[in-house]
Amino acid sequence: MAGLTLDLIGLQLFTGLALGAVYVLLAIGLSLIFGMLTVVNFAHGAFYMLGAYVGVYLLALGGNFWLCLVAVPIIVGTIGLVVERFLIRPLYGRGIDYPLLLTFGLSYVIVELVRIAFGKAGYPFDTPELLQGAVDIGIGYFPLYRLFVIAAAGVVLLGLWLFLERTSFGLIIRAGARDPQIVRVLGVDVARVWLVVFGIGTGIAALAGLLAAPLQGVIPEMGGPILVEAFVVTVVGGMGSLLGAVLAGLLVGVVVSLSSLFVPEMAKVSIFALMAIVLLIRPQGFFGRAGLMS
């Protein structure tokens, strides 16, 4: 291939990491919810989209992007709390497909409500002024905003890690993921833990949606395709594993990016090929625990 330089490959790798950052944010919420609640959350894409729309709404009210970064996860996370408390909680102990079907249906309801409230056409979402344009990162020009997305994902991950590893509530969450029954016997209100976990998961999904809005604009259907990719990431990383979600998210981003450079017609299939290969070698994914689905 003509014009193939190290700089181009480097830039392509970097593009893949930026792409992966959004996958990571989405997959981490999915993985957190699945690892704790064994709920396969098909509404995750809808919460992602909701994050972008709440951002559009707040901006129209006169808010700014930085305020949205805080407000959007809180607002959508709160909606997540309500969903867990009143829709998902009654289904615990009924088998994995009950909440799966519920969230699947819920995603349709949310998308349709957004269509009714905001219309089908979608909204523009300008890149915040401070982050507009491209900067020279030594190997070529790269959009400043995408660098910001990588950094934002890093901050969220660091915060989540500190929360889980360094707080007593985090300790309970980790214990609850390992053996909810023992935790319950020890007198911990597991229901409350699950509620919070679902809220955090949906809040992070909403943040991912808000971060993606300046990349591609906002439409009601934006959560569909990326949910599929996020599921691939979760499966490759191992269902329920946060570290797995991070590594697999970045890996999937890089694989998509490099395959679009070398074999563009394979770019769309490449992530599924990656999933197939990983599952053949390690059926539980990178860091998954076997038997979680059974």
Binding site: L8, Q12, M222, S260
Partner: peptide
């Protein structure tokens, strides 16, 4: 002539190459 599938949501992976050309 760089092709992309219909309904694509991300073109970032195709853009560095175009820039290099």
């Amino acid at each position: 002539d760089i092709r992309h599938p219909i309904g694509a949501t991300d073109f970032s992976t195709l853009l560095p190459r175009i820039q290099a050309l």
